[in-house]
Nucleic acid binder design. Structure first.
Length: 290
DNA sequence: GGGCCCGCAGGG
DNA sequence: CCCTGCGGGCCC
């Protein structure tokens, strides 16, 4: 079993067509032969298939409301119990928390204007914007997921061809809208796990029904013109509040790791060293004090 | 086209 | 190991 890949699969651009689930699995676009959700409770979900198996699904092309799995009678396929936030359902929720991209595949048996006439078609990357439970048409609670087509698909398309090593796609750009889309990479996940999702400033650990939430913050930003490095000595594990305060220049970190601008001190676990040049860069370019 | 059932491979 | 899941083929 190979490593799970989040993001595009090299060699299979958006629009790629497959005759069967077996062919989809072989390509690595969606590995399970039958299940609609691919992923684990720990890693998150990397792909889904829309095949019309659940009557509550809705599809508007760039926006999908997908139904979780479980609670159905094996023989008749009818909903006979509530669905639980476990297995693939929890995996999709984890992808939301981590901002991971989900490959969406539409099958011909999925009844919508966006389904292919035959077989299965890879329709690109979506993000999980929301998840909640509601009563389905059969009267039992089902889990639902709102998926939004990724706006940065074009960037990733060109990137996927050259670079797709490892199990996480590398973000080129971070959307900074009201809702911060912070996509997990191998490194950002590593920093969060090193601190067990505790904020390095206030030590708080936020936990929702689908698990803990934290954000990885680059000290010296990535990309032009900052050109910070994507490495552990340039990363912090923060709660959303302190991430915002850090990015907006409310505080900075001194060479001796004391905080400037706010009270408190920075927590550092064994083996995590911060680059002094990174700390200096942040102080000089974002912090107004001193 | 609907119902049935034999499957696989993934994941806990 | 056991259980499950938006296949797929073959009946009728």
């Amino acid at each position: 079993m190979s490593e799970r890949i989040f993001g595009h699969i090299p060699g299979y651009p958006v629009g790629s067509w497959f005759e069967s689930r077996a062919a989809l699995s072989e390509a690595g676009l969606h590995r399970p032969q039958v299940a609609g959700i691919s992923g684990t409770e720990g890693e998150g979900a990397d792909s889904i298939v829309l095949s019309g198996g659940y009557e509550d699904d809705a599809d508007w092309g760039n926006e999908i409301v997908y139904t979780g799995h479980g609670g159905r009678d094996r023989g008749t396929g009818k909903q006979i119990t509530h669905q639980k936030l476990s297995r693939g359902n929890l995996a999709l929720a984890k992808s939301r928390l981590a901002g991971l991209p989900v490959r969406v595949i539409r099958g011909s048996t999925h009844k919508s204007n966006y389904s292919p006439p035959h077989g299965y078609r890879y329709d690109g990357l979506y993000r999980v914007e929301d998840h909640w439970q509601e009563r389905g048409r059969a009267g039992y609670y089902i889990w639902r997921y709102r998926l939004i087509k990724s706006a940065e698909a074009g960037i990733e398309d060109s990137q996927a061809a050259t670079e797709s090593k490892g199990s996480y796609s590398v973000p080129q750009r971070q959307e900074t809208t009201v809702l911060r889309i912070v996509r997990d990479t191998k490194l950002t996940r590593k920093i969060k796990e090193a601190y067990n999702y505790h904020c390095q400033i206030c030590k708080i650990r936020l936990e929702g029904s689908a698990g803990p939430y934290a954000e990885a913050a680059h000290i010296r930003p990535l990309g032009m013109p900052h050109n910070g490095s994507d490495s552990l000595d340039n990363l912090l594990c923060l709660c959303p509040n302190h991430h915002v305060l850090f990015d907006y220049g409310a505080f900075a970190i001194a060479d001796d790791l004391s905080l400037i601008g706010i009270e408190g001190s920075l927590t550092l676990v064994d083996g995590h060293c911060l680059g002094q040049a990174n700390l200096r860069y942040r102080r000089e370019h974002y912090f107004l004090g001193s």
